[in-house]
Design a protein around this nucleic acid. Structure first.
Lengths: 100, 100
DNA sequence: TTTAATTTGACAATATTTGTCAAAAATAGA
DNA sequence: TCTATTTTTGACAAATATTGTCAAATTAAA
């Protein structure tokens, strides 16, 4: 499975766009976009939306990949990550929302 | 399934401890512990460790519940949460770690 | 009823994230 | 080659989010 960064870089290059072009549309420095594409930084949720539009990427698949990386980042030092994911999944499915 | 806050409050009361006692051991104000138990605030990872010890709660189950709430918090406004969880789960299982 | 415990909310301190900038490194044409 | 352009790097600044204190209000219980 491709990382978010890989998807973004490949899509940008396929369109013949430079970091300069895309980062201008996102209103950020090229340095950040460079880091996002190489997985050194995470994009913001808003940037993901914009990038899907600019690069004409399937929005859903991009978001799913992005979110899954965000989750994995939270769990990166945890031994019980898989169990936590399973509990989270069940909770979503059963539509339980006790907390504020 | 009980929330982290419910587990903490019930365990504390079962031991006959006051917020004052436990929050002193955690070195925080009672106000925060009160909020944590009612789900208004999240505990830190360190506080969870300490609380498991102080209240003699099964550490693994407390951590799993805590982490799953953290994940759900990230996904609370997302339509594609379940898909993201599934991708994350597969990624952990296959041991893929491309990003820094 | 009054003492102790808990809750509430404003806001302060701290930590994390997101960004800029300038210079270095890599890449591509002439 | 050489030299323009693009990309990458890393130090640091700005913005945002999290975690905390405090004092007063509310609730519970002696």
């Amino acid at each position: 499975m491709k990382t978010t960064g890989e998807i973004l870089r490949e899509s940008r290059e396929k369109k013949g766009l430079l970091l300069r072009h895309v980062s201008a549309l996102l209103d950020i420095d090229t340095a950040i976009l460079s880091k996002i594409e190489r997985g050194e930084r995470k994009a913001t949720r808003e940037q993901i939306n914009k990038l899907a539009e600019i690069l004409e990427i399937n929005k859903e698949s991009l978001i799913v990949q992005y979110l899954s990386e965000k989750i994995l980042y939270e769990l990166k030092d945890e031994d019980l990550g898989i169990q936590a994911l399973k509990v989270a999944e069940k909770t979503i499915k059963y539509g339980v929302t006790k907390n504020k």
